[in-house]
Design a protein around this nucleic acid. Structure first.
Lengths: 217, 217
DNA sequence: CCGGAAATGATACGCTTGTATCGAAATAAG
DNA sequence: CTTATTTCGATACAAGCGTATCATTTCCGG
């Protein structure tokens, strides 16, 4: 019987190399040869792991997505029971990848998103990740809402929509930071303010301003 | 004296071709030859208009940015005087490029943003556009806030932050729609709900829920 | 210890890329 | 009309790409 190698672990190793290179030149800018060199394997080895470049990129984007969602999940699990608002805030900035140490991951993510917009197959794994994150946020928001006594007359809180908002906001802020339109601090500020609003909205009820009472009829 | 050609208009024409192709394969996927063919000029003509590919892409991204900001500005100017909330909502969804007819423009924008994350020079024009849009939103929000009598005790409204939030949200929603994580309708819904919140927040004041009064002390 | 299947990695191939080159065509001024 | 200059577009070229090929090496099972 012939030699056996652990393809799965090699694929992961190659995937790491893909990410490192995608961080420098974007997904389409990575070449099979550079990947091989980075992963310290031969070009042939890369070819035997993936039928072609497209499959390699697909595996890589899937890998990144899983890593991010996993990290967010971990963060949630490892967080001690504290104010739901704080948890939500930390989680959101974890998703937004604003911390300097995750800047590379954010850049990789953004380049993949950009590429997926014109390369449908790549979009699949991204959708999966987004769905996971949105679900996680929605559940968290629901929990937070349930811990608050509800106004019986008020409209339902619609956690799905709130989750979508938060996720899109986080993503938009990430790209704005990477482009250099916002600093990481400004983005954090925006995110925290938004979460604070969300939280406050659950804990308070609204009344029309006295100065506007005249418009009542 | 020799023949003279209008380089500026040709550059614009080529830029259109670049956009059409970038919409199909991303900025790095456009080739000089394809651009020439699309613009119905020779390869040599493209070369005489731009020193190299990078300059061509830079001109194109600048062109797109100006077109979008111009369109948003127009929309604002052409809008009849009506509720500031409505205007803000329309403007936001104009920025988010959610309507089907602007899907291509949105895709182009997103691919350029993704590419700019790993190609610093391209980020310049994008920053300019974002700054313009943010400024415009901030001014609009300020106007809206000033038309409302302010609580003297309340915190300042911070229109810059609100503008940043709205811009990032619009951008995030756009990408989520393009990836296929959200439908255009869901994105519109999120955007409108956010603007409604913003508006309501200006017109109302908050009181702690009666059921939470016990936590006061 | 050894036979054979699997893994290896260097090399080859066909294409496409961005860019450079250059003779021919075009045209405004004299 | 002539001429000086610019524009033109086809072609050339080197580099880099993804992929295919194949003799060689490796190593598990019997």
């Amino acid at each position: 019987m012939p030699k056996q190698v652990d393809y799965e672990s090699r694929r992961r190793r190659i995937s790491e190399a893909v990410c490192l290179l995608a961080d420098e030149h974007g997904p389409e800018g990575v070449t099979m040869r550079d990947v091989a060199a980075r992963a310290q394997v031969s070009l042939g080895a890369v070819q035997r792991c993936f039928r072609n470049k497209e499959e390699m990129l697909l595996f890589a984007v899937d890998h990144v997505g899983e890593r991010i969602t996993e990290r967010v999940r971990d963060r949630l699990a490892r967080t001690p029971a504290q104010s739901a608002a704080t948890v939500l805030g930390h989680l959101a900035s974890e998703i937004a990848l604003l911390r300097e140490e995750h800047r590379a991951e954010a850049r990789i993510w953004l380049t993949f998103v950009g590429h997926a917009a014109v390369n449908e197959p790549l979009a699949g794994p991204l959708r999966t990740s987004y769905a996971t994150l949105q679900d996680l946020l929605a559940r968290l928001i629901t929990e937070a809402a349930e811990s608050i006594p509800a106004d019986e007359g008020a409209a339902p809180p619609d956690p799905q929509r709130k989750a979508r908002t938060l996720l899109a906001l986080a993503d938009g802020l990430t790209s704005h930071v990477l482009i250099g339109h916002l600093t990481a601090e400004e983005a954090e500020d925006v995110l925290h303010a938004h979460v604070a609003d969300l939280w406050e909205r659950m804990h308070t009820t609204r009344v029309r301003k006295p100065s506007d009472l005249r418009t009542d009829a």
